[in-house]
Amino acid sequence: MNITILCVGQIKEKYFRDAIAEYQKRLSRYCKLQMIEVADEKTKENASEAENDLIRKKEGERLLKHIKDSDYCITLEIDGRMLTSEGLSKEIDRLGLAGKSSLVFVIGGSIGLDTAVLKRSDYALSFSKMTFPHQLMRVILLEQIYRSYRIMRGEPYHK
């Protein structure tokens, strides 16, 4: 399966880059993984909702350029569906069995995703009602995808 992590902004902290590289290495046994980062927009501290909408729209346009019609698009959203690790594993497995060979997980920037991206989404996934830094979310997502493949194959890791 081809899995793309599509996200806004670049990782600046070495410890996040190291963690991402480790999970990319681990996942290489199970899938073809691609990380795509699109440029983020500078967000003012006290931006109006109209200014935030414009920022989300610009970032959303950049994201949508990387999502093909044939991709199964999973957006990470606070109000999305929450799954257990086993549930995510079953969902990835189900999608593969249903002929979906390309999954795109989309992580928005600091102020979220544009409505056009949300409309393109095939599945809204939530990891928590809490807000996480989008850089950390990449690591959490990669770990859960890795855990999913280990669960699917009955390999030791999941506890």
Rank of each mutant, 00 (worst) to 15 (best):
D71K: 05
S85P: 01
G87E: 03
F105D: 00
L76H: 03
I107Y: 06
L103R: 04
S110W: 15
E86T: 13
I111Q: 02
S110G: 12
V104H: 07
C73R: 02
G80C: 15
G80Y: 00
I111V: 07
L88N: 02
D69Q: 14
K100L: 03
Y72H: 04
S110H: 13
G112F: 09
G96A: 13
T84F: 08
L95T: 12
T84D: 04
R94P: 14
K90P: 13
T84A: 03
F105H: 04
K100Y: 05
L97E: 12
S110T: 15
D71W: 01
A98Q: 13
M82Q: 14
I74P: 02
R94M: 04
G108L: 01
I67N: 07
L113I: 11
R81Y: 11
L103E: 11
I67G: 03
G112L: 12
L88V: 07
D93E: 11
S89F: 08
I111L: 05
K100E: 05
E86S: 10
I92K: 02
S70W: 07
S89Y: 02
I74W: 01
A98T: 11
S102D: 09
M82T: 14
E91T: 11
I78P: 01
G109P: 01
G108W: 10
V104M: 13
T84E: 11
I111M: 10
D93L: 15
K68Y: 10
K68E: 15
G80P: 03
S70Y: 12
Y72I: 07
E91P: 08
G99S: 05
S102I: 09
V104I: 14
G109M: 07
L83D: 03
G108H: 00
G108A: 09
C73E: 09
I78W: 03
